Amino acid sequence: MATEKFLLTSEYEKVDDLIFSVKEFLAKEKVESHILSGVDICLTEALNNIIKHAYNGEQNHPIEVIVSKDSNILEMLLIDEGKSRDNFIIKELDYDPNDIENLPESGMGLYLIKQLMDDLNYYSINGKNYFTLRKILY
């Protein structure tokens, strides 16, 4: 199993660089480009959510991303020390994708992550929040 750890601080400007590094690591591990696109979307949403909600937009707080890939599973574990979520319910969104003027204003990020990944898990323990995203590779 190939594993790499990535660290960043809670600054929106640093998210793209981290995602680029993760995708570079996964490309070396022969992960297909369409999955890398999904990784990009999921990490963008998840990391921005951590910065916005767990850290209330405050900078300089740690976020750790541990990426593991074996022959048929890609796993990304995001760890932060911010405010934990009260619940981890991903609501189904009822919207018309052709009516972009009236897209839902909240919940869209987690909904997208759920659509792109095969398994999600979130829990908090000892002041840290753990969000795991898994994708089955065929």
Rank of each mutant, 00 (worst) to 15 (best):
N72V: 08
T9F: 11
D40C: 05
Y111E: 05
S10R: 04
T9V: 11
E105S: 06
F6V: 09
P62N: 15
L77N: 12
Y122I: 04
D16G: 09
R85K: 15
D99S: 07
T132G: 06
M117F: 11
D99I: 05
F25A: 11
E81R: 10
K114G: 02
V31E: 04
I73E: 11
N48S: 10
P97R: 10
H34G: 00
N87F: 08
T44M: 09
E81Q: 15
I50K: 02
S33H: 13
E101Y: 01
N87C: 03
A27W: 08
L77P: 07
N60V: 02
S106R: 12
S33W: 07
L110V: 03
E29R: 12
N126Q: 09
K5Q: 04
V15P: 00
G127S: 03
I50Y: 06
I79G: 01
E75N: 13
I51C: 07
I41Y: 05
G38D: 10
I79Q: 04
H53R: 13
H61T: 09
M76D: 03
T44C: 02
I66S: 08
L137N: 02
F6C: 01
I50L: 02
V31Y: 06
E4T: 10
E13A: 15
T44N: 10
L43C: 05
N126T: 04
S33A: 10
D86F: 11
Y122R: 06
I35N: 06
C42M: 12
E45T: 03
I35T: 11
E92A: 08
D119C: 03
V65S: 14
L74V: 05
Q59K: 15
G57M: 14
A27Q: 10
K69Y: 05
L47G: 01
N129R: 00
T44A: 03
V22Y: 07
N49R: 07
R85F: 07
I90W: 03
I51D: 06
E75L: 10
V15L: 01
I136N: 15
A46Y: 03
D86Q: 15
